[in-house]
């Protein structure tokens, strides 16, 4: 019985020190960047069309109207930060880098990436409608900023969870 238990422990250890653990870690890095970049790109493009169509009539409002694009850019910065931090931790599989590390970095990348994707979508759609409304009614500025901040914070939540998951 004792030998069975030893063999079981050895197999468990071998499974924990799987050589494919860095695969998941690298995938986490990739997902953190590509999903936030996709969300940021959608937000920039969607609010960019709105800015272009309102700026023909009111180019003096460009400083106010560009804020959705800036916020969409910040979502990509979240992804970049998480990708840089997590990629520094990816190492060859073994006792130093168990499958647990790989999975938690995978989860960190996914949570940051998908939260960023959602935040980028929200910024794009709300920003598009917001800047079009801004050209008609400049007093809507505060409302647009609030909506955009609430959309932006969704990406920030994802980044915080990703840092907790990936950096500990």
């Amino acid at each position: 019985m004792a030998t069975d238990g030893d063999q079981f422990n050895a197999e468990l250890l071998a499974a924990e020190h799987a050589m494919y653990a860095p695969f998941f870690g690298s995938l986490g890095v990739t997902f953190a960047m590509i999903f936030t970049a996709a969300g940021s790109a959608y937000g920039t493009a969607k609010s960019g069309t709105g800015i272009a169509s309102m700026a023909v009539a009111r180019p003096d409002l460009v400083m106010k109207a560009i804020i959705p694009v800036v916020m969409a850019g910040i979502v990509a910065i979240y992804g970049l930060v998480v990708a840089v931090i997590v990629s520094g931790k990816v190492a060859p599989g073994g006792p130093e880098y168990t499958i647990n590390d790989g999975f938690s970095q995978f989860a960190a990348g996914l949570v940051c990436g998908l939260c960023g994707l959602g935040a980028g979508y929200a910024i794009g759609i709300a920003g598009d409608a917001g800047v079009r409304a801004l050209s008609q009614q400049p007093r809507f500025f505060v409302g647009m900023i609030l909506i955009l901040i609430f959309a932006e914070v969704l990406g920030l939540y994802g980044m915080i969870v990703a840092l907790i998951l990936g950096a500990t």
């Binding site: 910065i77 840089v84 931090i85 500025f141």
Partner: peptide, 27 residues
């Protein structure tokens, strides 16, 4: 590892401070 984590957190805080200035200037 630790230093890039702390630097990243500070960088994100700085981004929001600059964004605050941006919004204030636009306002």
């Amino acid at each position: 590892q630790d230093s890039i984590l702390y630097a990243a957190i500070i960088a994100v805080v700085i981004v929001h401070i600059v964004l605050g200035f941006f919004v204030y200037a636009a306002w």
